[in-house]
Design a protein around this nucleic acid. Structure first.
Lengths: 107, 107
DNA sequence: CATATAGGCAACCAAATGGTTGCGTGTCAA
DNA sequence: TTGACACGCAACCATTTGGTTGCCTATATG
């Protein structure tokens, strides 16, 4: 998995919104995803390409329609491989910070 | 918590690298974080500001040094509030995708 | 066939981003 | 006090990004 592509894809609020919409109703067409989105169809299409390239969205052609499906695997990957790394030591980190702030308070 | 700031802060590989370095050794100074980083001190400083504004890094002044501490709370926030949302339905999503691909295969 | 509908491609543009250089400020130590 | 050291601030620059418009292709449907 390409961590960087996934993080960059998730960095944009419009793209997160698209994922939210696909979460609510999976397998939508480009046209459906454009509805009420205050963006041109082409802008949405570009976002979907970025999500596809990050493997966050998979597509299936059906006639002249292209259905979009959310793919939670890369998100899982981040959560497991990168984020949990920090959770592990969370308490240790917080107490280290607290101590440092106290030391600074003394000075 | 400002989701957007956190996602944008995490979107840059240099900033993730800085977090990795702080994970390895917490409480480093700007100078220490610059070492071997093939970037000017000012560039690193800018990244640290962004991490600070996203509340991913906390700082404590100590004399003329500024110590940087990783803060795992916002990462936790994302993992819990946003990412788990997708994990929940992971199996359902994957089976829906599989079915759609099969349908497309028939056409 | 003719035409509407769903989507793809490419050029273009403004603003944000990631980086630089140059210089100023505060703190420690000889 | 004088200089070295750690950092902050600001201007500037190239590239990326998010968006637009215009036009083209492909699939349905009268």
């Amino acid at each position: 998995m390409d961590d960087d592509a996934v993080f960059k894809a998730l960095a944009d609020a419009s793209r997160r919104q698209l994922l939210d919409r696909l979460y609510e109703r999976n397998g939508q067409t480009l046209g459906a995803l454009c509805a009420d989105l205050d963006m041109t169809r082409q802008a949405v299409a570009k976002h979907l390409v970025i999500l596809e390239e990050a493997n966050l969205v998979s597509t299936a052609r059906q006639g002249r329609e292209k259905l979009h499906f959310i793919n939670p695997v890369p998100i899982n990957g981040i959560a497991e491989r990168w984020i949990n790394k920090f959770e592990q030591r969370q308490l240790g980190m917080l107490s280290a910070l607290k101590k440092a702030l106290e030391d600074e308070g003394d000075a």
